[in-house]
Structure formats: structure tokens, C-alpha cells
């Protein structure tokens, strides 16, 4: 079995800096980390590997520095890594990113399962996995919160949809975006971390893809343009209620009751 995992390098925290001309987030000078949701996707792949002995290949799209994400994946147990890096890919939105990822993954192998995190902590769109599924024409399972069963031929998962749980079984190939709560990621192993520095990372550029038309990638291939990034204004005002003992408990109970009743009404 072959599993691909999409992992993205993101700023460790956001200062809301944006290039005024391109609308792209400025990342220079900020410490970077692997997107926490994608680390969970890798952990999911590693758990499947423990059952099926699958081979795990990690793909990351970004500048050369994004190699760090692949090295981190190696230190957790990934087998192969590809850095998707070309000037033509810079400034991609969801459409261009998903197209680039689908082209890249197709250029490497036929993967049985593609795993990615529910969303990234910088873009926060949570749309890339669905778009990749569309480009590749394969089944897409979103918000996967449990792997019920996995075999060489099919996978059975539980998805946390709005207000309900859905159990879905599918044959391969398929793409899964996983909830953060599905597994606690393991810590990188010292032994693997030491060997990861010497492990090869392959690079995928525009020339390696089937579609070499640069108008389909990066800013040129993006359907959206970011006009402004700014922190949301905090407009909500909340009353501060101070109550003691039983009065406080009664007050909280009343809130619970109201919340519960309104939920029941919605159902």
C-alpha cells in the first residue's frame, strides 16, 4: 500500500503581515512549524502503516526551507519526501495549490490513500483536500475522526459532519482530511531524527509535471486575490456577572438549560 501525506510549513504564529501588492502572507523572519493538522495526518498514516506496512511519502509545497517539514516527517517515520518548489508556484490560492498538488502527486506514483489535515493554520480555508479530490477524480472523505478499519483494499472511517457522524467505506484510491482529534501525534524519534539529515529529499519543479503551462500555477493560476489580511475587530460585548455560591450555580445552570433547550428545538 502507498500513502501520500500533504504537509505544509506555516508560521509558528501570525502577525497578520501581508504583501500589499500580491496579497500573499509575508513569512520572512517568522519561525516556521509544520501545520499541526498535517502532523496529525502524518500520524494517521503512521498508524495505518503499523497495520498494513504501507510506504509513506510526504509532499510539501513551498520554498527550500520547507524541507524542514519533510525532515520532521522523516524523524517521525515517513519513508520518502518530495519538495514541490518552483517560482511558478508562488502565491497560489486554493485552486492553484490543489491543482499543483494533484499534478505533483500524479507525477510520482499511484497512491492508494492521500491524507491531509483538516485545514492549515495560515490559510484556514479547509478546501484544498476537496479540490484535490476533484482534480484527481477520487472519493473524498472530510473531517475524518476515526479509522474504523483499514485493509489492503479498502478503508472504513467515521466522519464528523455537521451535527452527525457518518460511517463511510471506500476502495482505493481516496483522499482523507482528518480531524485534529483523531490521534495524538508521536514525538520525533532521536534515532530517526539523526538519520533524517542524510535522507534524500526529491524536488518537483514545473518541468516535472504533466501540465507545464505556468499560467495554471501560482498567482497566475489563482482564481482569487487577497485584498487585505487583518485581525478581526473585537466588537462583541459581554456582561460581567458576579455572583456568589448558590446564586452563581443557579445562574450557570440556567444558562445550561437555555442552551440545551435551544439545541433541542433545532433538532
Amino acid at each position: 500500500m502507498k500513502i501520500a501525506v500533504f504537509m505544509k510549513q506555516v508560521p509558528a504564529y501570525s502577525e497578520g503581515n501581508m504583501d500589499e501588492k500580491t496579497g500573499v502572507i509575508i513569512r520572512a523572519g517568522l519561525p516556521s512549524i509544520a501545520n499541526v493538522y498535517d502532523v496529525v495526518a502524518l500520524e494517521t498514516a503512521l498508524r495505518i502503516k503499523e497495520i498494513t506496512n504501507a510506504e509513506i511519502t510526504v509532499f510539501t509545497m513551498g520554498p527550500d526551507k520547507a524541507e524542514d517539514v519533510i525532515r520532521e516527517a522523516y524523524s517521525m517515520g515517513a519513508d520518502k519526501g518530495y519538495l514541490i518548489c518552483d517560482k511558478a508556484f508562488a502565491g497560489s490560492d486554493v485552486l492553484a495549490t490543489s491543482y499543483t498538488l494533484s499534478q505533483a502527486v500524479s507525477s510520482v506514483d499511484n497512491f492508494d490513500i492521500i491524507l491531509c489535515g483538516k485545514q492549515t493554520t495560515d490559510g484556514d480555508t479547509a478546501q484544498v483536500s476537496g479540490a484535490v479530490a476533484e482534480w484527481l477524480g477520487i472519493p473524498h472523505m472530510n473531517w475524518v475522526c476515526e479509522i474504523i478499519n483499514v485493509t489492503e483494499n479498502e478503508i472504513n472511517v467515521k466522519c464528523q459532519l455537521d451535527g452527525r457522524l457518518s460511517v463511510i467505506q471506500t476502495a482505493y484510491p481516496c483522499i482523507l482530511s482528518v480531524e485534529k482529534s483523531i490521534f495524538t501525534p508521536r514525538m520525533p524519534s532521536l534515532k530517526l531524527k539523526m538519520s533524517s539529515r542524510k535522507k534524500e529529499i526529491s524536488k518537483i519543479t514545473l518541468d516535472d509535471l504533466n501540465d507545464k503551462n505556468e499560467n495554471n500555477y501560482g498567482l497566475k493560476g489563482s482564481a482569487t486575490k487577497v485584498r487585505k489580511i487583518f485581525p478581526p475587530e473585537r466588537t462583541a460585548k459581554r456582561d460581567i456577572v458576579i455572583k456568589n455560591g448558590k446564586d452563581g450555580a443557579d445562574y450557570i445552570l440556567e444558562i445550561f438549560k437555555n442552551t440545551f433547550n435551544s439545541k433541542e428545538e433545532n433538532i
Binding site: 514525538m187 524519534s189 532521536l190
Partner: peptide, 30 residues
Amino acid sequence: IEEIAGNLMETAAMYNSDPDTAWAVSGETE
């Protein structure tokens, strides 16, 4: 760092710490 880490790993193994269970993180956030 790797040179020292390798040295520590060997010493720890001598005292029955399984190197496969050792964690290793880097980067400020981790």
C-alpha cells in the same frame, strides 16, 4: 549537535535506555 546526540544515545543505551523510545525535537516552538 548530532555528534553529541550520537554520543549521548550510545551512553544512554549502555544504561538500558532504548534509543527507539528517545524523543528529539528542534525548533523554538517544539
